[in-house]
Amino acid sequence: MGEKNSLLKNIAETGYNVGFGGKKHFMTYDLYRIFPRLISCVTIFIGIMQLTNIYKENVQTNVGDALSALLIIVGILGLVLDFHGDNKDAYEVAGKKLISLFNELRNMYHEVKHTEEIDLAPFKVRLKEIQKESEIGLSKQAIGTHIITHFGFFQVMQSKWVTEELGLTTKDKFPFLHWESFCLYLFGILIIIFTVTIFR
C-alpha cells in the first residue's frame, strides 16, 4: 500500500509540473498572439477619446503629459511582445504536447488509485517516460503568465485530483508573494491613482 501511495504522489507531482507547464505555454502563446493587437486597439481608443469634447472639458490639461507617457509605455510593451512573439507557434506545439501528457497522467492516476491488486511496474516505467518527454518545454515564458497560469490550472483545467493528492491550499493556488503579484498590486494602485487624478 505504501508503494502505491508513493506512486500516486509521484504521478500527482509530475501532473502538477507538466499540466502547469502546458497551461503556461498556452498563456504565453495567447499573450504573444492577442496582446499586441489589444494594445493597438486600446491606444486607438484613447486617441479617439482625446478628440472628444467630454475629454477636453473634464480632463485636467496637466494630465495630458502623463497620458502621453502611458501611451508610449504601452506602445513599447506592444513592440516588445510582438518581437518576442515571432516563435509563438512553438509555444502552442509544446503546450499541446504537455497537456496531452497531463491528461494521460490523470488517467493513470485514477487507474492506479481505483484498481486493486495492480502491477505497478508498467506505470512506473511510463511515468519515467512521461517525465522525459515533458522536457520539451520552453524556458523563456512571457512576463505575467505565472499568475494567470495559476488561475487557468486550478480553476479551468481538471486538476482537482492534483490538489487533493498533494494537499494544496489557497496559498499554493495563488502566488501572493511572487514578484509578478507585487507588480500586479502596484499596477492596480497606479491605475486607481491615475483614474482619480483624471476625474477628480
Rank of each mutant, 00 (worst) to 15 (best):
H150I: 02
Q141P: 00
P122T: 13
N103P: 01
Q155A: 11
I130R: 05
K113L: 15
G95N: 06
V93D: 14
G137I: 14
H150R: 15
N107Q: 08
K97W: 02
V125M: 05
G137H: 08
I136A: 03
R126Q: 07
R126M: 04
F151E: 02
E135C: 04
G95L: 02
V125R: 07
K96V: 09
D119C: 08
L105M: 09
V112A: 10
K96A: 11
F102C: 01
L138E: 04
K160T: 09
A121D: 13
L120S: 07
S159L: 09
W161V: 12
R126K: 14
A142K: 01
F153Y: 15
I130T: 10
R106C: 02
A121P: 00
E117M: 05
H146K: 14
W161N: 10
K128R: 12
V125H: 05
M157D: 14
A94N: 14
D119W: 05
N107A: 11
K128C: 07
R106P: 00
L101M: 15
V93H: 09
K96R: 14
V93G: 02
F153M: 08
A142E: 10
Y109I: 01
H146N: 13
S139A: 10
T115R: 00
K113W: 03
Q141I: 11
F154W: 15
G137A: 11
L120Y: 04
E117R: 06
V156E: 11
A94W: 04
N107W: 06
G95I: 04
H150Y: 12
L101A: 08
Q131S: 05
L127T: 03
A121M: 10
V93F: 06
E135I: 04
A142P: 00
D119M: 08
M108S: 07
E116L: 09
L101N: 04
K96H: 09
W161T: 11
G95Y: 00
G152P: 00
I147Q: 12
K132E: 12
E133V: 04
Q155F: 06
F154T: 07
Q158W: 08
H146I: 13
A121T: 14
I148K: 14
K160C: 04
Q131N: 15
H150M: 12
Q158I: 09
N107I: 06
Q141W: 07
T149H: 06
T115D: 03
